[in-house]
Amino acid sequence: MSRSRSIRRACAFLPLMPFVLFIAAGVGYTVIQSLGLWISAQPGESYPAGYAVILRSAWFYQSLLYSLWIATASTLLSVVLGTLLALLLRGLPQRLYPFALMYKIPLILPHVVIGLIVLLGFGRGAALGRLLAAPGSSALVSAYVFKSASFVTLLVYAVLRGFDLRQLETARMLGAGALRSFRALLLPVILPPAATAGVIVFLFSFGAFDLPFLLGASRPAMLAIDVYNRYWYRDLSARPAAMASLVVMFLFSLLFVTVYFRLVRRQKHGIRHV
């Protein structure tokens, strides 16, 4: 009885199995090629593993550090700005709130359009825009912040909606200063959604392709771009190293995914992204 039930329960997951298997196979293929195997269609032809190459090369560390740095800067700025925006929204009177919904515009816009907006905003006319955007970092971080701050706002505002503003008044009447009432009352409410949103923003700006493809510099490049160029525009012997960097990127991301689910589990009934 209970065995047939657990079999039935396992069968419920069958519709998603093809997806999971394909993704697992994709990761498996990446690992195999990173070891220098299955690179060429010719049997017997083999290449050395990519890990020794990336550990000895400067570009890999540069790209990895650069990606981590861009992701950290984008995350911190998005979380701070997004939270401030959520507080600002919470303070708006009912009548004006529908107009303020335009903060969701960046959530709808595709990344390539966000990239265009940053290119337009960074200078009048194409030439100057390119010149200013050339260093990459500032354009890239602005694009990520423009896109992600709204996302942070969405999650933080969802919990702030249930926060009784009169608590702040009470705290003030009881003699608490602005900083103290913020730390004692608002921060515990804001922190959990801001943290989960932050992890997602970090993961996204760490490994995405679209925005650095449009805005990024080529040296140092974001890891995703570097890997892509090494995989497609060099000869086959460059592939193990490219795949090895993808494996490192995958492991780093997995670490942050674990952090995300830890955070989410702690706030069982909180607002979440996925």
């Binding site: 994709g26 090629q33 890997v227 993808l246 990127m249 995958f250 991301s253 995914v257 689910f261």
Partner: peptide, 26 residues
Amino acid sequence: TAAIEAVLLTPALLPSISFAIGVHQL
């Protein structure tokens, strides 16, 4: 089931390039 759920939700959180080039080969 919490673990199964986490595994099933992970593809949306990972950078897509980390498995997409492998999937492309397949």
